[in-house]
Write a protein that binds this DNA or RNA. Structure first.
Lengths: 250, 250
DNA sequence: TTATTATTGTGTTGTTTTGACACCTTTCCC
DNA sequence: GGGAAAGGTGTCAAAACAACACAATAATAA
């Protein structure tokens, strides 16, 4: 029984100097959203309402992707979600730069020198059961994130940059869309991510070159305009057709 | 004096669960090279000659870029060199997958659960004074790296991938070239990195669109063919002209 | 001195891609 | 039935791309 207890302790033991912070992107109503957590921060006799990214320390027995997936499960109730590491933040003073935030976090830590690995995640918000969403969490328009605890704004900015960067190489938008979607939904998603607009005809010509974008024999229902044709993403075709770019920046 | 001694200890204190491993790229004689370190590994009565990437634990007071630069200084004697983090490797068993390597490394560690942050670095080999190069280090053709200790081959592969990936966004090749270089030198460098060939006329037309590639009024000397015109990279122009790509993968 | 070698530097053509642009068709709601 | 709000479509000029050969120039050898 003692040996069982020690083994159990190792499984859940966290490494005090390493954490994972997650930038969880979702898409809904033509808006790119990010999940933030609320905290009440007492400071000098006042209570401040603050927002931060979800995060946690890694466990001794975990790979960091497992940590990220665990955080996601805790926050949204979802499993098997796309997660990708994007950057390490390792300033020794990263938690100390704001006095208020530091006073709040210090008692929660074993060691206040914490390196964090940033992960971004992409969620189709149709899959999110809001009753499973952790009570203190909220989806915020990605373009309205302007003040977060610690260096979390910087982490968010870097994640957003990396998402755009990665879209040059991989069609990640499918992680944010339902299984069946219209071309316009996808267009508006790209527009939301890149904060730009694409000409519909040019965009349709471009995406129709994606061998893994499959037109369905179904159309939208319940819309007060001409119903759009539905499409889906074929992961097998995508994997079979992946090619590397032998290309460089001018 | 006791307080001074404690302060000194903190400055150099390393974090036992976090390290940095460096993939140092150099370019010479039309070959892309990588710096590897030799180790003699005793195992079951035999001594094995092994190669690994340079690496070290981070210090409590260091940002990981500082760690990477410190490793570079140790290995090559150089300072102010381009370094970029590319990936975190966090498998809890990453050091244990090979028994021989593990037995060698174990006594050197405080904790055998070590997360590492991979950095790649780009060096102009003309800047390297080989007398400053650490004795146990060697430059190896990047295409001939096939067996390294621990997960270092995987780290190397990922760095190489990221280098190519990043070249889609930034003209990093200038970090590998001397201040004055010929267009053909640069062409062969791109060819070495992408392991492909470019048509000279098409390549020249493409690079002549780089606003930051400055033709000099100098030509090569000491060559037994028509001397090529020299060019240089203007970082100020590059920074002024940076634009983001609103582009996605088909 | 001349010939040889090994490069450097250059333009053209056909094909493909890109950027800019407007209007008919289809559903729901009043 | 009319209006609103979309979905879906093609053309043209310009730019980019892929494929392709030979004159010019320095060092070295004969």
């Amino acid at each position: 029984m003692t040996s069982e207890k020690i083994k159990h302790k190792t499984t859940f033991e966290t490494l005090p100097t390493i954490s994972v912070d997650c930038v969880i992107f979702g898409y809904e109503e033509n808006m790119l959203k990010v999940l933030v957590r609320r905290e009440f921060v007492p400071f000098q006799g006042q209570i401040y309402l603050e927002w931060k990214l979800p995060g946690n320390h890694i466990r001794r027995t975990e790979d960091i992707s497992e940590t990220a997936s665990r955080i996601l499960k805790e926050q949204t109730g979802l499993e098997n979600i796309f997660v990708k590491q994007f950057m390490v933040f390792s300033d020794p003073n990263r938690l100390k730069n704001n006095e208020r935030d530091y006073e709040w976090v210090k008692p929660r830590l074993e060691d206040d020198r914490v390196l964090t690995v940033g992960f971004y995640s992409l969620i189709n918000l149709k899959d999110v059961d809001n009753s499973k969403l952790i009570e203190v969490a909220k989806w915020v328009n990605a373009y309205e994130i302007n003040d977060l605890m610690f260096d979390h704004k910087e982490i968010f900015d870097e994640a957003f940059k990396k998402l755009r960067y990665d879209l040059l190489h991989e069609p990640l938008v499918f992680e944010l869309l339902p299984v069946k979607f219209t071309l316009t939904q996808m267009q508006k998603l790209y527009e939301a991510i890149f904060n730009t607009t694409y000409d519909k005809r040019n965009y349709r010509r471009k995406v129709n070159k994606m061998p893994y974008l499959i037109p369905l024999d179904e159309i939208q229902t319940g819309v007060s305009h001409k119903p759009a044709r539905l499409y889906t993403f074929d992961r097998d075709i995508y994997e079979k057709n992946r090619t590397e770019r032998f290309d460089f920046r001018v």
